[in-house]
Simulated assay, not measured.
Amino acid sequence: MVHSKPFSQACQNNRQPILERIKAVFTEPATILEIGTGTGQHAVYFAAELSHLTWQPSDRPGGAGHSLGWIQEAALANIRPPLELDVSLGSWPVDTIDGAYSANTAHIMSWEEVEAMFAGLAKRLIAGGLFCLYGPFN
Rank of each mutant, 00 (worst) to 15 (best):
M1L: 05
M1S: 11
M1I: 06
H3P: 01
H3I: 00
S4N: 05
K5Q: 14
P6F: 09
F7N: 10
S8G: 11
A10S: 14
C11A: 15
Q12D: 14
P17F: 15
I18S: 10
E20G: 07
K23I: 14
F26V: 10
F26G: 09
T27R: 13
E28N: 11
E28T: 11
T31Y: 00
I32T: 15
I32W: 00
L33R: 10
E34S: 05
E34H: 02
I35T: 11
I35M: 08
G36C: 03
G38L: 02
G38E: 10
G38Q: 05
T39Y: 08
G40K: 01
G40P: 09
G40N: 06
Q41N: 06
H42I: 00
V44P: 04
V44L: 07
Y45S: 07
Y45K: 02
Y45C: 03
F46M: 11
A47T: 05
E49V: 01
H52N: 13
Q56R: 12
Q56Y: 00
P57K: 03
S58N: 10
D59Y: 07
D59F: 08
R60G: 13
R60V: 11
G63D: 13
G63M: 15
G63C: 15
G63T: 03
A64L: 06
A64D: 04
G65I: 00
S67Y: 01
L68H: 03
G69I: 01
G69T: 06
W70H: 15
I71H: 01
E73F: 03
A74D: 02
A75R: 10
R80H: 05
P82K: 05
L83T: 06
L83D: 07
L85F: 04
L85T: 09
D86V: 01
D86S: 06
S88E: 13
S88W: 05
L89C: 11
G90Y: 00
G90M: 08
S91W: 05
P93R: 03
P93S: 09
V94M: 06
D95V: 03
T96K: 10
D98Y: 01
D98Q: 07
G99W: 02
A100S: 15
Y101F: 15
S102N: 01
S102M: 07
A103S: 15
A103V: 10
A106E: 05
A106C: 14
I108T: 06
I108A: 06
M109Q: 14
M109H: 12
S110P: 11
S110R: 14
W111S: 14
W111A: 15
E112T: 08
E112L: 03
V114W: 08
E115L: 11
E115G: 12
A116T: 05
F118R: 04
A119P: 02
K123Q: 15
R124L: 10
R124W: 03
L125M: 10
I126K: 14
I126L: 11
A127F: 03
G128R: 08
G129H: 05
G129M: 07
L130S: 13
F131I: 04
C132D: 06
L133V: 08
G135Y: 04
